Amino acid sequence: MSLRGLLGSAPVSVSVSVSLNGGRSAADGGAVPLSPPDVVEAALGAVAAGAGEVLVHPRTPCGRESLSPRVVGPLLEAVRGAGVSVPLSVSAGIGAEPDPAGRLERVRSWTVLPDRAVVHFAEPGAEELAQALLARGVAVDALVPLGGEGAGAGAQASAPGALARFLAWPVRNPARIRLAVELAVADPALVAGLGWLPPVPLLLFGREAAAWPVLRLAARCGAGARIGVGDVLHLPDGRPARSNAELVSAALAAVGQEGAATAWSR
């Protein structure tokens, strides 16, 4: 959905994307897929449960995040080869390559391209990285954290700076760019304040305790929503999630409940 008219129009169908593994490690439990076979299985299950997009953080055999074409390409081929036909995204962040120049080099050397890539606008070199991805035909999710220091990963969550950098970056092709807003709290005022931004699609998500409230807020706004083991390890009732598929099923149920509640209140 466009940023224009948020919270001011009837709800629309909400697409739910899944973050398969995020910055998790094996220490976070068996629900986190790290190896290519586990990622493929998790992607198939999540899509079967209703996920409209798949986001993955590719890993080396030792579990380290990587943007190397030798890691990204085979993983994308394996997921697509298994029959996953929804858009595939990768995270092009500092967790996979700390050096901005290194990130650019990696992206430019990809031999197999994802459909989308997440660019963290709180990280140095975001504008150049986003432009390089667009030049290669990869759509960009411009990630901006909002709502305080709880958003994002530690010191990288400079929300005002990230938003300012996104605004200063010329959006020349809105059809290839989406604003991915990580909210630390499910505050409708934060979302309403986005209405004056460039007319690009919007995806809202939260992590850990914010994940489910923000997903419900996204449903009320008609924005895209995201869930998955990469963002939260528990279901809405507090039970540990056994898989990404279980989280997606719970998310779609929550989206449906929000839509029904909103329709009833009109």
Rank of each mutant, 00 (worst) to 15 (best):
A42G: 08
A10R: 14
R239E: 14
P114C: 03
S25A: 11
R103M: 06
G73R: 00
V181C: 02
P100K: 05
V232C: 15
L179Y: 05
V248C: 12
A142Y: 00
P198A: 14
H57G: 00
L197N: 10
A218Y: 03
G259I: 07
L215C: 12
G83H: 12
A254W: 03
A46G: 10
A250T: 07
A96E: 05
V18A: 04
L88W: 09
R108G: 12
R59D: 03
D231I: 05
G161T: 12
E53N: 07
V47N: 11
A186P: 08
R239G: 13
R216A: 13
A49V: 08
R220T: 09
A135Q: 13
P170H: 10
R59Q: 01
A126Q: 03
L88I: 11
Q131T: 13
V214I: 10
A151P: 02
F205A: 02
G93R: 12
G137K: 07
F166N: 04
S17T: 08
A245M: 06
G256S: 14
L190I: 10
A92M: 01
L44K: 14
P198Y: 12
V71N: 04
L217Q: 04
R178H: 03
L20S: 03
F205V: 01
G224C: 09
L55F: 08
S9W: 08
A186Y: 01
S89D: 10
G5D: 14
A251C: 11
G224H: 08
R239T: 12
L252S: 05
S15A: 15
A101Y: 02
V119T: 02
L44F: 02
A122P: 02
A51M: 12
R70D: 15
A254V: 06
R176M: 11
P98Y: 04
G259D: 02
R239C: 02
A82K: 10
D187K: 07
V140A: 07
L113V: 04
F121W: 05
R178V: 11
L194D: 11
A27V: 04
W196D: 15
G206N: 13
V12S: 13
S2R: 14
A162G: 06
V255N: 07
D38L: 09
E53C: 04
P74L: 11
G22N: 01
P199W: 02
P87A: 12
L190T: 12
S85P: 00
S9C: 12
G230P: 10
A122M: 03
V14Y: 05
W212M: 06
G230C: 09
C62G: 11
P170N: 09
V16Q: 05
V229L: 06
V181H: 02
P61Y: 01
P61F: 06
L134K: 08
V84Q: 00
L252M: 04
P11N: 01
L6N: 07
E41H: 09
A132E: 06
P124E: 14
A82H: 06
G125V: 03
V71G: 01
L55Y: 08
L44S: 10
Q257C: 06
D28Q: 08
A253P: 00
A10K: 08
S19Q: 10
A122C: 11
L202V: 15
I94A: 13
L215M: 07
V14L: 05
L129Q: 07
G222I: 04
A26R: 15
L190W: 09
